[in-house]
Design a protein around this nucleic acid. Structure first.
Lengths: 205, 205, 205, 205
DNA sequence: TATGAATGAGTCTTCATTCAT
DNA sequence: CATGAATGAAGACTCATTCAT
C-alpha cells in the first residue's frame, strides 16, 4: 500500500501542477493582450479550455493567477540572467550577458514581457517597486563587475551602480520599443547596438 | 453697464475653468496613485472636495477627465521639449536640452509623470503607441541633429534614429527609477550622468 | 396706501400666474414629445427660456408641473364638452356634440392630447383611472340622453351606459389614430364618419 | 451513453428556457404595474426570486427583457387573431373573430394587455407606431372582407379601411376600460355588445 | 425675484467568487 | 475533481431638487 500510496500522491501532484501550468499559460496570453484589470477569469478559463470553477480549484483568486504567471517567468528570467552574467568573464562580457539574456528571453516569452511592460505600477498586483526588486540582483552583479573593472583601470571611472541601472534601463527601453512597434531592426541588431553603445561609453577616456 | 456685462461673462468662464482645473488637479493625483481603471469618479470628486455630480458638470465622462489631465501636461511637456531642443546649438546641447527638459518637467509635475509611466498600454485611454507618438517629433529633431553631426564628423558614426530613441529610453528609464524609488541622487546628478554617458559614447572613436 | 397695496398684490399675482402659464406651455410641449419620465426639468426650463431654479419658484416638483399641464387643459376640455352636450337638443345632437368637442379641442391642443395618449397609466402622475374620472361626467350626460331617447322609442334599445362609453372609446381611438399616424383624412371626415357610424347603429331596428 | 448525452444537452436548454420564461413572467408583471421606465431590474429580479446578476445571465439588457416579454405575447396574439379571422366565413363572422380573439387573449394575458396599454409611445422600446404595425395585418384582412361584403351588397357602403380601424378602436377601447376599472359586466357581455353594435351599424340601410 | 452651480440618491451593468450538482 | 449557474458588491452616469448669490 505504501508502494502505491506514494506514487498515487505524486501522480495527483503532477496532475495538479499540470493543471496549474495550463492555467498559467492561458492567463499569460490573456493578460498580455488586455492587462490585468481588463482580463476576466471567464476569458482565462475559456483560453484554458476549462470551466471557471476549475480555475478556482487551482488558484484562490485572479490576483494569485497573475502572481503565478509573473513568478513563473520572472524567476526563470532572473535565474538565466544571473547564470549568464556569472558565466561571463570580463565586465564587457557580463554586460553583454545581461543584455543578451533579456533579449533572448523576450524573444522566447513575448507575452510575458508584454505583461511586464503593460502593467501599471499602481496595479494591485505588480508594484513597479516589486518588479524592480527582481532587477536588484543582476544589477548588483554588474555593479560589482564595473567597480572591479574601474579599480583595475579597464574602463573609465563611472559611478558604478548608476551605470549598471542605466544599462538595465537601456535594455528595458529597447525591448519595450520592440514590443510596442513593428520593429524594422532585428533583435540581434538592437542588442548589438546597445552593447556597442555601452562599450563606447565605458572605454571613452 | 457694458463695462460690467463683459466681465460678468468672463467671470463665469473663469470660474468654469477654475473648476475644471480643480478637477484635473484632483484627477491627476488620483490617477497617479491608482491608474485609470482603479480610480473611481467618486474618489476624484472627493479629492476635489466636491460631489460626484459636480464633476459631471464639467466633464462628460471619466475618460474625458483622463484625456484632459494628459492633454494638459503632455502638450506643455511636448512644447517645452521642442522649444529647448530648437533653441540649443550643437548636437550635444540639443541632447542635453532633451534630457533637461524631461527632468525639469518631471520635477515640476511628478504626478503627471507617474501617470505616464503607470498607464498600461492596453488601457482604453492611453495606448503606449499614442504616447510614443508624442516622442516621435523630439526624437526626429534629435535624429536630424545627430545625422548632421555625423556628416560633419563631429561625432562617431552611429545609426542616428536608433541612437535618438536610445537617448529617449535612457531618459525615461532614469525618470522612472527616480519616481519608483526614493532616489539618493539629485535629479541634477542623474541628468548630468546621462549626458556624460551619452557624450562619452558619441565621442568615442 | 391701501389703494396701492391691493393692485400691487394683484400685479404680483398676475405676474406669478403669467410665469406659471409660461411654464405650463413649455412643459406641455416637452411632455408631449417625450412623455413624463423622459422629460427633464432642464428641458422644460430651456423651453420656457428661464433658469431651472425659476421653474421651482412656481412649482414645487416636476410632478406638480405635470398635474398643472393636465389640469389646465383637462378642465377646459371638460367644460367645453359639457357645455356643448348641454346645448345640444336631441340625443343624436348630443353625441355629435361630444365627438365634435373632442375633435375640435384635439385640433387646437394637439400637444395636450398627445400627452393624454402617451402617458402610461402606471405613471406616478396620471393614473388611467383618474383620466377616466374626467370622462365620467360627459359619459353620464350621454347616458341620460340615450336612456331618454330609448324610453321615448327614438332609438333602439341599447344598454345606455355601455353605449355611451363606447362612443367615448370610438372618439378616443380615432383621435389616437390621427395623432399616431399621418392621417390622409381630414378631422371633419373622421368625425363625420364616427357620427354616421353611431347614428346607423342607434337607428338600426 | 449517447442516450444520455443528448438528453443532458437538452436538459440544459430546457433549464435555460425555463429561467428565461421565469424572468419574462416576472418582468411582465413588473412592467404591467409600472411601465418600462419606472421598472427596475432589481424589481424584476426580486419578482423572479433571483439575484440581479442571474437576470443578466439570460438577458443582456433591460430593454431586451422588455422586447422578449412583448414578442412572446404579441406574436401569439397576432397569430391567433389572423387564424381566427381566416377561419371565419362571412364578414360578420370575421369581425366577431377579431373581437373575440382580442377579448379571449386579454382574459388570458391580462398583464400583457396592461403593458400594451400602459406603454407611452415615446418609449424607447415600443413606439405606438410599431404597436400599430401589428394591427395592420388583421385590419387589412377585415378591410378586404368588408370591401367584399359591400360589393356584394351584403352590408351598407362604408369606407372599408376606416371602418376596419374603427372596429379595432372599439375593441381596444373596451378592453382598456375593462383593465382600468373593475368592470361589472362580463367579457362575454362586452364582446357581444360590441358585435351587436357593429352589426347594427353595418346592416343599417 | 431670478439664477444655475452643486448635490447625492438611484439605476443599469459587469465580474470575481461561491457552491450545489 | 469538474462544472457553470447564481450571487451581489461596486462603479459610471443621470437628474430632481436645493441654495448661495
Amino acid at each position: 500500500m505504501s508502494e502505491l500510496a506514494q506514487p498515487a500522491k505524486l501522480k495527483k501532484q503532477v496532475v495538479s501542477e499540470f493543471r496549474q501550468s495550463e492555467i498559467i499559460t492561458a492567463a499569460r496570453k490573456v493578460f498580455a493582450e488586455k492587462g490585468y484589470v481588463a482580463s476576466t477569469v471567464d476569458e482565462i478559463a475559456a483560453q484554458a479550455a476549462m470551466a471557471k470553477g476549475t480555475v478556482y480549484l487551482y488558484f484562490d483568486s485572479k490576483e494569485l493567477i497573475y502572481n503565478a504567471v509573473l513568478a513563473n517567468d520572472l524567476e526563470t528570467l532572473h535565474r538565466l540572467t544571473l547564470e549568464e552574467i556569472a558565466a561571463a568573464g570580463t565586465v564587457l562580457e557580463k554586460i553583454a550577458a545581461y543584455i543578451n539574456a533579456r533579449f533572448d528571453y523576450c524573444e522566447e516569452r513575448r507575452d510575458f514581457f508584454r505583461i511586464m511592460f503593460i502593467e501599471p505600477f499602481g496595479s494591485p498586483v505588480l508594484s513597479k517597486a516589486k518588479a524592480r526588486e527582481w532587477l536588484r540582483e543582476p544589477v548588483r552583479m554588474l555593479t560589482v563587475a564595473i567597480d572591479d573593472a574601474i579599480s583595475t583601470n579597464q574602463i573609465r571611472r563611472w559611478p558604478a551602480e548608476v551605470l549598471a541601472w542605466t544599462i538595465a534601463d537601456l535594455t528595458t527601453g529597447a525591448l519595450q520599443r520592440r514590443l510596442a512597434t513593428m520593429p524594422n531592426t532585428t533583435a540581434r541588431e538592437d542588442a548589438d547596438f546597445l552593447m556597442n553603445f555601452v562599450y563606447a561609453a565605458l572605454r571613452a577616456s
